[in-house]
Simulated assay, not measured.
Amino acid sequence: MKKSYLAMWAAAGLLAACSAPKSEEKATAETSAVEASNEEWTSLFDGQTFNGWSKYGGGEVGKAWKIEDGALFLDATNKAGWQTGDGGDIVTNDEFENFHFKYEWKIAPKGNSGVIFLVHESPEFKYPWLTGPEMQVLDNNGHPDAKIVSHRAGDLYDLIVSSEETVKPVGEWNQAEIIINQGKLDLFLNGVNIVSTTLWTPEWDSLVAKSKFKDMPGFGKYKKGKIALQDHGDLVYFRNLEIKKL
């Protein structure tokens, strides 16, 4: 912050006597501001354990979820139907309201997954996607879901198509961001704002009414919830999961 009173002191002949301690004070204040800014981000994954995560519906994270080289991944060797045996969707233990969430993902060939947010975990809802919107994770060139508009990587699943496709080739890491602040939702993929909308408005209700979620009474209603990583039965990796409350 500019200290205009320094100029006044200089005019009074006091600058020489006071500049040194004030400069030190300013430097200390700026350092503290930087440290505070850095402390705003909280890691949701320590790279070694599943601390802070649980299986959706309760219990420990399924054994199909594994950790390697600082990334968590779903081992889809034991596929059971459209999900994975001893896998299941996983969610944060904490709930979040206004936040900036950033993470990286990569998907295996022909893979499908997603990151679901504002999830309300309750026995009445079997899956996270019955309440929370989803940012799609997909192999656009290999998975059949990519043939459906609004089901491609980065889309707000079945609701809003990305303004442009910025997804990297299968097997490469993508940087994604989900920002919610007072109902304003923005999705970023590899540095580009690809979806922007406002939740809980008549326009939002209209979007939901035209989607596959129209008959799901809990969908898109909750203003605070958990973040989920989806088990869609395919190999998928996540790393560098960080969140900042807004």
Rank of each mutant, 00 (worst) to 15 (best):
M1H: 15
S4V: 03
A7N: 11
A11T: 02
G13M: 09
L14K: 06
L14F: 02
L15Q: 08
A16G: 07
E24M: 09
K26I: 10
A27Q: 13
S32Q: 12
A33T: 01
E35H: 04
W41K: 09
T42F: 06
L44D: 03
N51V: 09
G52Q: 02
W53P: 00
S54P: 04
G58H: 05
E60M: 13
I67E: 01
I67H: 03
D69M: 08
L72T: 05
F73H: 07
F73I: 04
L74I: 10
T77R: 11
N78T: 11
T84C: 09
T84N: 06
G87C: 12
I90S: 04
I90P: 05
V91Y: 00
K102Q: 04
W105Q: 00
K106A: 12
I107G: 06
A108M: 11
V115S: 04
P123V: 10
E124W: 08
W129R: 02
L130M: 06
E134V: 06
D139L: 07
D139A: 14
N140T: 13
N141Q: 12
G142I: 15
G142Y: 09
H143L: 15
P144C: 14
D145W: 01
A146F: 02
A146N: 04
I148T: 15
A153F: 11
A153H: 12
L156V: 04
L159R: 06
E164I: 03
E165P: 01
T166C: 12
P169T: 14
V170T: 15
Q175E: 14
Q175Y: 10
A176V: 06
A176G: 11
I178Q: 02
I178W: 02
G183K: 07
F188M: 11
L189H: 12
L189R: 05
N190V: 13
N193G: 10
V195F: 02
S196G: 12
S196W: 03
T197P: 03
T197S: 05
W200A: 01
T201K: 04
E203C: 12
D205M: 03
S211A: 03
F213N: 04
P217G: 15
P217K: 08
G218S: 08
K221Q: 14
I227F: 00
A228W: 00
L229R: 00
Q230W: 01
Q230M: 02
H232M: 05
H232Q: 05
G233H: 00
F238H: 07
R239I: 13
R239K: 15
E242H: 13
I243C: 10
K244V: 08
K245Q: 14
